[in-house]
């Protein structure tokens, strides 16, 4: 079971508490979270299911590689962090 943590910057718009979910890939883990929170999906992924351009995701501290299909593997007890990629002013 991996745990997914979301940036607190989302709190202005909706609840996004950490969640411990099943999933062998990033896509599967996120899908498990979004199944219970469908609105949250659109904050993290675009219409085609890719990571939004200014969203960064880390698995155990490493930036994920496949931002389009979300195939990066996720292991037991992994920590996934969904952050905003800071930009603008």
């Amino acid at each position: 079971m991996a745990t997914v943590h979301f940036t607190r910057a989302l709190e202005r718009f909706l609840d996004a508490p950490s969640a411990t979910v099943e999933g062998a890939t990033l896509g599967e883990a996120l899908a498990a979270v979004f199944a219970g929170r469908p609105v949250l999906r659109g904050y993290v992924l675009d219409d085609q299911g890719a990571l939004r351009r200014h969203v960064a995701v880390f698995i155990n501290g490493s930036l994920v590689r496949d931002r389009e299909r979300l195939t990066d593997p996720v292991g037991r007890d992994d920590e996934i962090h969904v952050f905003q990629a800071l930009s603008g002013g």
């Binding site: 989302l10 909706l14 659109g42 085609q48 969203v55 905003q84 990629a85």
Partner: peptide
């Protein structure tokens, strides 16, 4: 037009309560 989290749509009802709506979305490419 959220820089990080995409385009969103909100509606305030006549009583003054805001809620988020499902934003328009494109079908799979």
């Amino acid at each position: 037009d959220l820089g990080h989290f995409g385009a969103k749509l909100w509606r305030r009802d006549a009583a003054g309560a805001w809620s988020e709506l499902a934003a328009p979305a494109f079908p799979p490419k």
